[in-house]
């Protein structure tokens, strides 16, 4: 009896899944590390709004996630902290069209205890200051180099060279930079405003007007997704009212045109 009931129930579920408008099932979302707090909230809200759906996250550097998707990792959605990788992947036919869903702004961050005596962005050129940067080739590193170029225009052309000689470590992701700052080992580093908001014990130092850099965060459905319907729904949800509210709550800016 119990056995039969189970079979019937299973059939019923199956029919429901195919006939109803709302697709259900599990999706795996590969998202940039900086999205962790906002996406966890969004994930819960999405599951609540779509009974039967489950969202699993993997957070890492956008570049690393892109590599994993190229290697065939079972991702359904890719949300990156840079336009570069989603565009590359879309060109390779691995993901669908990337759509912007948030923006973020680079800032200078220091430990609140301020062991390096940082006053403003120009302070990081002072001899002996310990600066941590993202490595070249990773999104945070490339964005930081753009900002350093802009700062060079503000503070004079020797500025960038002085900062580079103050670099004590080049990190592969934002987490690495945040760790070095939170422990107070480094005096200053460049991360996103949302990273400062999410961390404990870090303070943002506003950059001069001409050195503000805002990056757009794109999201795309992975072509190989076995659950593309739910994946598309999740993308829609992130770009919708609930998703935008959760992103704004942790400091992300609006979708840039």
């Amino acid at each position: 009896m119990a056995c039969c009931a189970l079979v019937v129930a299973a059939c019923g579920d199956d029919q429901a899944a195919t006939s109803t408008e709302r697709p259900t099932g599990g999706v795996t979302v590969f998202a940039a590390s900086s999205l962790e707090a906002a996406f966890r909230t969004i994930g819960d809200a999405f599951e609540a709004a779509n009974p039967g759906s489950t969202v699993t996250f993997q957070f890492a550097g956008s570049d690393r996630l892109a590599t994993q998707i190229r290697e065939g990792a079972p991702a359904d959605v890719y949300a990156a902290a840079s336009e570069k990788y989603p565009i590359e992947l879309a060109g390779e036919g691995l993901v669908g069209e990337p759509l912007g869903f948030a923006s973020n702004t680079l800032t200078l961050a220091i430990p609140t205890a301020n062991p390096g005596g940082i006053v403003d962005a120009s302070s990081i050129a002072a001899p002996g200051t310990k600066v941590v940067l993202g490595a070249e080739g990773v999104p945070i590193g490339d964005a930081t180099r753009k900002v350093l170029g802009l700062l060079g225009e503000v503070y004079g052309n020797q500025f960038t060279g002085k900062v580079v000689s103050n670099v004590v470590s080049e990190e592969q992701d934002v987490k690495g930079i945040v760790a070095k700052l939170e422990t107070g080992e480094a005096d200053a580093g460049f991360i996103y405003v949302t990273d400062v908001a999410a961390s404990s014990g870090l303070t943002a130092i506003t950059l001069p007007e001409g050195a503000m850099l805002t990056v757009s965060y794109p999201i795309a459905v992975v072509r190989a997704s076995r659950n593309a319907d739910v994946a598309a729904r999740f993308v829609e949800f992130v770009r919708g009212v609930d998703g935008q509210a959760a992103l704004a709550a942790v400091g992300f800016g609006p979708i840039t045109p």
Binding site: V132, S169, E170, E171, A179, E185
Partner: peptide, 13 residues
């Protein structure tokens, strides 16, 4: 090493 020494070419990498 990554956590304690950081990563800088020629120095700690």
């Amino acid at each position: 090493t990554l956590l304690f020494a950081g990563s800088l070419q020629g120095v700690t990498q």
